[in-house]
């Protein structure tokens, strides 16, 4: 059972990684905690669900959902963050503002779904199981692991090896200096929000599909875990978020398997405090590390 639970944890953790990457990316670039990220994740699942039941092929529904949640994230930036950013010292007001956006999106989803739990129709994705080395793994789990690995690799390449990535790191390090060098910070913000929203939307679809459940409050537990991930991984660290997500997924599976499941959250947050005691800046700790840059 141990190996099976580790596999379960890695699948869950890989989806946490998709979710947390966008969250940490926004924090890294803007130093803002976007509490509406969970609602964006939920919106991704809702949009793909309604596209699917209205006849759109599932893979097109995923693409549409990612596009839509990317745009929703841009809207969130424009409505909830941009004005506050211009005023400076935006951290706390932006946090409250993002909670407001979260509540609005959740309320809309509740009205749209009539408070019902939704699920993708049976057969949306082939249900096939394989026994590999004594492990029971579904086709969907394999696809999720591969898709997440490819997307994470693409994101890291994008941030490290492209002009856009250099601009992101420049803005994250020092927005004013970047602007003097001709970088359009507003454009960087919009692009990071779009990427974060699209990744959250995809994570929502995958979670909705994997666990057969889409509901208006589905983002809340993932937001809590995203906090754990970004703190354990190191605030703003992309690599840290990935490693911490996988660790969190595995830790969660193992605590459920071997300890009373009611203690899962207590144990996970206990681990968080332990990591903070040993490495206050997180596993990949550099207190100034922001999306690969160092904030000045």
């Amino acid at each position: 059972m141990l190996a099976q639970q580790i596999l379960n944890g890695l699948v869950s953790g890989s989806v946490y990684a998709l979710f947390s990457l966008g969250f940490t990316l926004i924090f890294g670039v803007q130093k803002l905690l976007n509490f509406a990220h969970g609602a964006t994740f939920m919106a991704g699942a809702f949009i793909a669900y309604y596209c699917t039941i209205n006849g759109l092929p599932f893979f097109m529904a995923i693409g549409f959902s990612m596009l839509a949640t990317g745009l929703i994230a841009i809207l969130i930036d424009l409505i909830a963050f941009r004005t506050l950013r211009k005023r400076g010292n935006a951290e706390f007001p932006a946090l409250v503002s993002s909670i407001g956006v979260d509540l609005i999106l959740v309320s809309i989803a509740q009205q749209v779904s009539n408070t019902q739990v939704l699920n993708f129709p049976f057969g949306t994705f082939p249900i096939q199981f394989y026994n590999i080395l004594g492990l029971r793994i579904s086709l969907l789990q394999i696809v999720i692991l591969v898709v997440v690995a490819v997307l994470v690799a693409a994101l890291i390449f994008y941030l490290k090896k492209t002009t856009f990535g250099r601009q992101v790191r420049a803005v994250a390090t020092n927005e004013r200096a970047a602007a003097l060098l001709g970088v359009n910070a507003q454009s960087v913000y919009l692009q990071t929000f779009f990427i974060a929203g699209a990744l959250a939307g995809l994570a929502g679809v995958l979670i909705g599909l994997l666990f057969n459940s889409i509901q208006f409050l589905m983002g809340e537990p993932y937001m809590l875990r995203a906090f754990v991930v970004v703190v354990i991984g190191g605030l703003g660290s992309v690599q840290g978020a990935i490693v911490a997500s996988l660790l969190l997924g595995v830790a969660q599976s193992l605590t459920v398997a071997y300890l009373p499941s009611g203690l899962t959250d207590a144990i996970i947050f206990g681990l968080l405090f332990l990591v903070l005691l040993v490495r206050p800046n997180g596993l990949f700790g550099d207190i100034n590390a922001v999306a690969g840059g160092t904030r000045q």
């Binding site: 639970q5 379960n8 869950s12 459940s213 599976s253 193992l254 398997a257």
Partner: peptide
Amino acid sequence: SDFSALATK
């Protein structure tokens, strides 16, 4: 919604 660990157990 993630009951995979619990279900395996």
